[in-house]
Design a binder for these strands. Structure first.
Lengths: 197, 197
DNA sequence: TTCAAATTTGACCAAAAGTCAAGAAGAATG
DNA sequence: CATTCTTCTTGACTTTTGGTCAAATTTGAA
């Protein structure tokens, strides 16, 4: 039996507090006591909802990544290229609105922690998948297509992070740049005839 | 007076131990006592060489990033495109040889820790700078050139990380893909006439 | 040999993660 | 309403781990 009666469940409120703290401080700068204090709660209660500090962090991370994925959900009623453009705009909007959180999200992570890595990989994989969906059947057979798109997702991430520091371009221009780069990358896969396959 | 008599100074050996541990475990999975034990040393001695655990981590990180930058140092005797190709090959070679460390390096980091971020930014910035060096004067004036190249560096990082999981392409093919993408991205900046400047 | 500086230790301290018995608050039952 | 059962909440306690320090050991000039 899940319990989601009130406006916000305690668990949700705690995650919001964590979101705030973790976007402003590194993982081990944030003490359990800080979280408890910020939420007006005893330390023990935090452990009632989350088994360990690390699990709490994962919950916070999952929360924001799933929010990101939701807000950039592709609109399949649009044709692929337009769908991509809209998705990118939504992505940049998220980055802009939750700048601190977004940076912490991508550049954060707790060392080589496999669980954290898994969550971020899942996000990236999802984007790769979405891009693949928008490609015509004929293109999808290219040898290193998936690899190239994964690279492109990294391109978009780095682009957005750099953009946050200095908004020289509009979101529309960013999206255009990203799309052109994607198309060019895919095109270059065709030309790369040499030895693969 | 620096002291670098013997084969390897204690400090260097400690950094190597840290390199090993941090490439296999996350920052806070590695206890000071673990490091001391792995180096056959008392905990106190670690604090003789490094003020805090965090500083130790930074030293390890700086060590491997500077090693990466050294090994990929551009050979200015080559023409720009060839120089880039050789640089990329060296980069992928490093990633392959120090796979675990390399992954920890890029995807690691301690939360939003500004010092860690600064080190990684410095590496990325250096690459952006190197690419810019290889561009003809005429190209360097493009409005969002720096931004686009920063994105491309992210592309190369993501590409290499994905490649490490499944070596489907040769390093040469990877480099070719990366170069084509860079050129295409820059070209697309030209075409993006609209409203900037 | 001697002495001062550099190196190394291990016991100790402080802070932060994690545990738990017990109490308070709700909700269901009679 | 009383009672009882469940859920929620606390604060004191334990354990782990980062960090300190005086003292001991080693090194290397003089």
């Amino acid at each position: 039996m899940l319990h989601k009666q009130k406006r916000k469940t305690r668990r949700e409120r705690l995650i919001e507090v964590g979101l705030d703290l973790f976007s402003r401080h590194s993982y081990d700068e944030v003490a359990i006591d800080d979280i408890a204090a910020a939420a007006n709660i005893s330390k023990g209660l935090l452990y009632y909802y989350f088994p360990t500090k690390h699990d709490f962090y994962l919950a916070v991370l999952r929360h924001s990544t799933s929010q990101l994925l939701e807000l950039t959900e592709p609109d399949t009623s649009l044709e692929p290229l337009e769908r991509l453009r809209v998705g990118l705009l939504a992505y940049f909007t998220f980055a802009e609105m939750h700048a601190r959180t977004y940076v912490a999200l991508l550049r954060g992570g707790v060392g080589v922690d496999p669980e954290v890595a898994a969550i971020l990989n899942h996000v990236r994989q999802t984007y790769v998948e979405r891009v693949l969906q928008g490609l015509p059947e004929s293109e999808r057979q290219l040898p290193a297509l998936r690899l190239a798109i994964t690279g492109w997702v990294g391109f978009v991430e780095a682009l957005s992070l750099a953009w946050l520091e200095e908004h020289q371009l509009s979101k529309e221009q960013l999206a255009e740049l990203a799309i052109r780069t994607l198309l060019a990358t895919i095109t270059s896969l065709h030309e790369q005839g040499s030895s693969s396959r």
